[in-house]
Write a protein that binds this DNA or RNA. Structure first.
Lengths: 116, 116
DNA sequence: ACTTGACCTAGAGCTCACTCTAGGATCTAG
DNA sequence: CTAGATCCTAGAGTGAGCTCTAGGTCAAGT
């Protein structure tokens, strides 16, 4: 709940969320759908400021769709790059795991650190 | 440079880095090699506290290699999970990119947001 | 000898993304 | 009607991970 309030304060909804008679937020399907994409953008590392930029474009109305597209495409490229980077990390980490496995299984110590 | 000093302060080196007569750090190959793995661990999202835990194990000397292995294996699993997660994000994001591409190319508006 | 630049320490400050607190209003079940 | 859960707002606090400042030392070039 705190998170939703935080989101709203940060201007991360595509519209001002309306309140019912008691002052409580009333979400509709479009809000929840947007949260779906929004959360994927966040999970994949898009800074809130950039999400806000996208939101501003949507709120500004039609006519800037190619700008929205560019923003999404750039992020897509970044996510692909991040995946590649993680694969590279994985190779190094798995290499070390393999070294330790050999060490633990055989009692050899090549590639394993010891304090100096 | 600030980063290296920060690392040292945080106890992220496998040994106390010695100083020369002038008080400056003298790194050796093992230090740089460790930085290589260490940076991959960081890039792939391992919290500094967990890296420090690994460092402590190494500094504690031989005998805990299986614990080090476990730590690395767990992280490897997390990295794989993160890659999977990013692929899921990518699918959603690319879906939206495709929608916008269609919209921009054809002038249709299905799946594209407009302000309310 | 002198200037310039790289490095030293200790510690303060910053950004980001939350996360919680306080004090109050509203809604729901019994 | 009442108790308790759930929500409201505004604003303060948190934690990770840097990043910079100040005041000084040291080293290399001229």
């Amino acid at each position: 709940m705190h998170a939703i309030r935080f989101f709203e304060r940060e201007g991360l909804f595509l519209r001002d969320i309306p309140r019912n008679a008691g002052g409580r937020r009333v979400f509709e399907r479009q809000d929840v759908e947007w949260l779906g994409l929004c959360n994927r953008l966040r999970e994949s590392g898009m800074p809130l400021a950039r999400i806000r930029r996208f939101v501003e474009l949507v709120r500004a109305g039609t006519g800037n769709e190619s700008e929205r597209l560019q923003l999404l495409r750039e992020h897509e490229a970044e996510v692909r790059a991040k995946i590649d980077d993680l694969h590279a990390c994985l190779a190094v980490i798995h290499g070390k795991v393999a070294t330790y496995e050999r060490h633990v299984a055989e009692g050899t110590a090549a590639g394993v650190w010891s304090p100096t």
